[in-house]
Structures are given as C-alpha cells and as structure tokens.
C-alpha cells in the first residue's frame, strides 16, 4: 500500500517536472517523503533532460512533412479509382458478394489482358498459344462452309502478317516454316469452296463450278485479293532489303504465294479450270450439293 502511494507520488512529480516545475516545488508538496523522494527526483530530472534535450532538425522535419504530404497525395490518387463505400465493405452480407465480384473482375481482367497481349504475339512468343487456341475454338463453332472459308482467308492473312514480322526480325528460317500455315489456310478455303487442286496432270478438272453462291464467292475473292496484295507487297520489300543469302528464300516465298493466291483468285473469277498447272478439278461446295 505504501509502495503504491509512492508510485503515485513519483508519477505526480514526474508529470509536474515534465510540465516545467522544479524539484523543490514537488518536494514541498510531500514533506513527509522528502528524504526518500529527493534522490529519485534528481534521477528523474536527469532522465527527463536526456529524453527531451534532443529535438529534430527543423529542416529535416520540414522535408519529412513534405515527403509525407506527397505520399498522402499519391494515396489519394490511388484510392480514387477503386473506392467502395465503407458500409458496403463492412457489411457481413455484402462483403462476400463484393469479394466475389472483385475476384471475378480481376480474373476477367487477367484473361482480357492476356488476350490483348496474345493478339500481337508471333510464333515463339510465350502467349502465342493463347492466340491460336482462341482461333481454334472460334473455328470449331458451327458455321456454313462459306463462312468458314472466309475465316480461313482471314487466318491466312494473320499468318502472313506474322510471317512478315518474323522476316522483320531476321528470323528467316522461322518465317519460311510459318508460310506453311498460310498455305494450309488457303488449302482449307479451297476445300470449303469445293475446289480440288493438284499439280498432277492426270488429275484433270472433271466438271464446272457452281456459281449458285456468287455473292459469297465474290466476297471471298475480294478478301483473297487484298490479302494477296498485302503479303506480296510486304515480301517484295523484304526482298529489296534482305541480304543476298536470304533473297533466294524470299523469292521462293513470293512465287509460292503468288501461285496459291492467284490460282484460286483466277478460278473464283472465271469459274473455269485454268489451262496451266496446277490443274484443278472442281466439286460443288459440300453444303450446296444437297
């Protein structure tokens, strides 16, 4: 009990001394405890002096405040974009809904972000598979043969653009290999419009070509022409700028490109078999034959 009383007295004196009162004033308030109290208050005075003697450099303090204010402003800018009213977040009912919505939003954002990043990827990029997977899924959707034929022309154009970028980067081997994809998509188009192409002279055309879907065939032809023009122009530029050792390969690409596009375009234009190889025979488009 006596100890607790002294605890209170020491505490009282400490607070008075911290407020600027001298030791004597405090001792005068507790004359019965003066002997025991005096040395304690001297130690208290020395400790208070040591604890409060050092003050921060005003310049450093001001600079610190400036940096703090900048951090406050940055925090406000960050929060302005995504701020939920506190009552929504704190409500036990709405919290799981808000959390679920946020997760969905983030997942969708990541998916969209990956899709956007993948759309400009080329073979060899880490996200290229996202791009081709998406295309495969879309191509798997039920559509008419003519629509699929148009889609394959668009894909041939994309592959041509990618090949162009590979050439731009000096990846000639990869570019030449990638041209196979242009060829494959044009081959799919040929198949879907009901054309059978061959370089074998014994596989001669057998019958004429149905023009029942002329409008759609014209649209495909127009698409092929623009694709052909773009790819031919790009390849011609690479031929001019490429080193001698690469020119043969690029020239080969130009010729293959011309052969496959011009032959198909010529056929779609006339509806008749050409008199020069590759010869091809025609069949009515699958769906139209029914």
């Amino acid at each position: 009990m006596a100890s607790e009383r002294l605890d209170d007295i020491v505490n009282d004196c400490l607070e008075r001394m911290a407020g600027g009162e001298p030791i004597e004033a405090c001792l005068a308030s507790y004359p019965d405890d003066r002997v025991e109290l005096a040395p304690l208050l001297e130690a208290t005075g020395t400790t208070l002096l040591a604890a409060t003697a050092v003050t921060p450099d005003p310049m450093v303090r001001q600079q610190g405040l400036q940096r703090f204010n900048e951090a406050v402003a940055q925090r406000a800018t960050r929060k302005r974009g995504l701020r939920l009213p506190r009552f929504i977040w704190q409500s036990p009912v709405s919290r799981p809904i808000v959390a679920g919505a946020l997760v969905l939003l983030i997942a969708t954002g990541m998916a969209l972000g990956a899709d956007v990043a993948a759309s400009s990827s080329i073979p060899g990029d880490s996200l290229y598979w996202v791009k081709t997977s998406k295309e495969n899924i879309l191509m798997g959707l039920p559509k008419s043969d003519m629509s699929k034929a148009k889609d394959h022309v668009r894909l041939a154009q994309k592959r041509g653009d990618e090949m162009d970028q590979l050439l731009e980067k000096g990846m000639f081997v990869e570019a030449e290999r990638h041209y196979g994809e242009v060829n494959r998509n044009i081959g799919q188009t040929v198949d879907l419009v009901g054309l059978r192409m061959s370089t074998n002279t014994t596989e001669m055309p057998t019958r004429g070509f149905s023009t029942a879907n002329r409008a759609e065939l014209d649209a495909i032809k127009a698409s092929l022409e623009s694709t052909w023009a773009a790819s031919h122009s790009a390849l011609s530029i690479h031929l001019v700028t490429a080193a001698d050792k690469d020119r043969v390969m690029i020239l080969g690409l130009i010729q293959r490109n011309k052969l496959i596009f011009r032959t198909l375009i010529a056929f779609l234009e006339s509806g008749e078999s050409p008199n020069w190889p590759p010869f091809y025979r025609t069949e009515p488009p699958r769906r139209f034959s029914r």
Partner: peptide, 19 residues
C-alpha cells in the same frame, strides 16, 4: 495503469543507482 506507475517507480530507483 497501476502497473505502469510501479514499473516507472522501480525504473527510476534503478536509474538513480546506475547513474
């Protein structure tokens, strides 16, 4: 709070000796 006052008192006592 009482514990803080007691700790404070004990610390000042010890500091007085150490100082």
């Amino acid at each position: 709070e009482n514990a803080v006052k007691a700790l404070q008192h004990a610390a000042i006592k010890k500091l007085r000796v150490l100082l």
